[in-house]
Every structure is written in C-alpha cells, then in structure tokens.
C-alpha cells in the first residue's frame, strides 16, 4: 500500500514540473506517512515470518503466513475470541441504539413533571466514566451472578447518556408538526416511532451503531476484570495468551493476532471514511 503511494505521488510531481513548489510538501508527507504506517507495516512483515527470520531483521515477507495464521486461529483459539468480541460488540451497539431511541422519544415527545431533572440525571453520567467505579461494578455484577459471562460483558453497557442525548438532539431537530400530524391520524407513540421516527433516523442510528461497535470491540479493562476463563474472553484480552506463549516468545503469531484483531475496526474505518471525515464527534464517548 505504501509503495503504491510513493510511486503514485512521484509521478504526480513529475507531471507538474512548473509547480515544483509542492515537491517538498510531498516529500514531507511521504516521510510522515511512512513513519506513521511503519508499526503496522512491520507487523505485516513479522506476521509472515518465523522466529529466526524475525530475529534476523528480515525486511521482506517470510513464508510462514499460513502457519502463523493457523497457529493463532486454531491452536490459540483466536476464532473464539473474535466471535466473542463480535457478539458482545453487536449486542452492546444494538442495545444502545434501542434504549437511546426510546429515551429520545420520551424526552422530546412527552411532557412530564421533572423532565429536566431526569434529563440531568442521565446527562450527569457523562461525567461518571465506568472506569472510575469499575471495581465496585465488578462486585455488583458478580453478586448478580453475571461475571464471566456474555451477560456480564454486555448488560452494564446497554444504555448510555451519549445514545439518549444523540437521539434527543436528532428528534428535537425534526419538524415539530410531524408528531401533530401523527396524532391527528390517531397514531400512538409506538406507531409514530415505528412508522415515522425510525425511518427518519437511519443515519444517526447507523453512526451510533458503528461507533458503539468499535467501542465494544476495543473494550479492554472490563473484560480483563470480569472474565476469568478463556471460554467467554474477548480478543483484546485474549491476545495476552499469545504474548506469553510459553517456551520462548514467538512474535510472528503475536503480530498476526494483533493484525487479525485490528481487521474489523480498520475495515469499518476504510468503508466509512467519508462519514468519519464529516465527523460525528458527539457519539464517540461511552
């Protein structure tokens, strides 16, 4: 990938000889890109090598891609960690989207005494990161009998202030007469939600889903704390079993594992670059 860019930009520079002023910018950017991509390029190379190739600092791909992949995927149970991560992230993302839509509906289309108190109680949780009370959370989840299980990994994260706030803002920006029209047609709130709001919210829902999927995928401290066996472990923590791989460390499989675990988020990023570029800053936390 890197090599392609280099030749591509070199041609671009040559074609524009009169405007040579940009040449130094291209050189600077190529160097910067090379430095920033170096860790991953090195990991790509290392993941195809065995220990002796890696220790000899060979800078070309080795022949052990298949072997490393099979060691990591089958012998070291990476498939199970990946599956657990995927299921957990999907449940968290779906849960947050659903609870967020319901909360947004309540905040925007209902009036009730103390609405802003409830809203502040929800919003204040933005200042209460899960990490701050994570030991007590573990105690509570353990008491509820959910530790070391998919339930314990997901249920504490099925709702968040971010999701509620996002949908509240989105619904508040929709024309107010939508709900009036729906009421005149005799729709109840759930019909209004199903027929009008959800079809008008696919963008927001999609953005939230993707961000929360990545949030779940990259979650590390909570699974590290709450999951003890390897049965329910997720990939971010499971990689540690490759780091301490017994007799002499093998970095090839470790790098392979790191790359495979990064594949889903990187693919999502590449597929969704444009929406990322326009930025959904709001949805990033929690």
């Amino acid at each position: 990938m890197e090599a392609d860019t280099k030749t591509g930009t070199a041609q671009a520079v040559r074609r524009n000889k009169p405007r040579r002023r940009t040449a130094h910018i291209h050189i600077a950017l190529i160097v910067i890109c090379a430095v920033l991509c170096a860790p991953v390029v090195y990991a790509l190379l290392g993941s195809t090598q065995n220990n002796s190739q890696l220790l000899n600092f060979r800078l070309s791909p080795g022949e052990f891609f298949g072997e490393n992949l099979s060691v990591v995927w089958n012998d070291r149970d990476l498939w199970r960690y990946m599956l657990n991560s995927a299921v957990m992230s999907a449940i968290i993302a779906t849960g947050k989207a659903i609870t967020g839509i319901l909360a947004g509906l309540a905040f925007v289309y209902f009036r009730f005494p103390g609405r802003s108190i409830v809203f502040v109680l929800v919003l204040v949780t933005l200042m209460m990161p899960t990490e701050v009370s994570i030991l007590a959370l573990f105690g509570i989840v353990d008491d509820l009998g959910m530790s070391d299980s998919l339930a314990g990994l997901t249920i504490p994260f099925l709702a968040s202030a971010t999701a509620a706030f996002l949908f509240r803002q989105h619904f508040a920006n929709l024309p107010a007469n939508l709900s009036e029209a729906a009421q005149l047609d005799g729709a109840n709130p759930l019909q209004f939600l199903w027929r009008v709001l959800i079809p008008m919210s696919w963008n927001v829902t999609g953005a939230l889903f993707v961000i929360q999927f990545l949030y779940g995928w990259n979650m590390y401290l909570w699974p590290l704390l709450s999951v003890s066996g390897s049965e329910n472990q997720v990939v971010q923590v499971g990689l540690a079993s490759l780091q301490a791989a017994g007799e002499g460390q093998s970095y090839g499989p470790l790098l392979m594992g790191a790359l495979v675990a990064s594949l889903p988020p990187v693919l999502v990023f590449l597929a969704l670059q444009r929406p990322f570029m326009t930025g959904f800053a709001l949805t990033r936390d929690k």
Binding site: I98, G100, L102, I155
Partner: peptide, 8 residues
C-alpha cells in the same frame, strides 16, 4: 420508555 436507560 425511559425505563431501560434509567435502569441500566
């Protein structure tokens, strides 16, 4: 409607 969010 708020119950799921508030409960969690």
């Amino acid at each position: 409607l708020l119950l799921p969010t508030l409960a969690v």
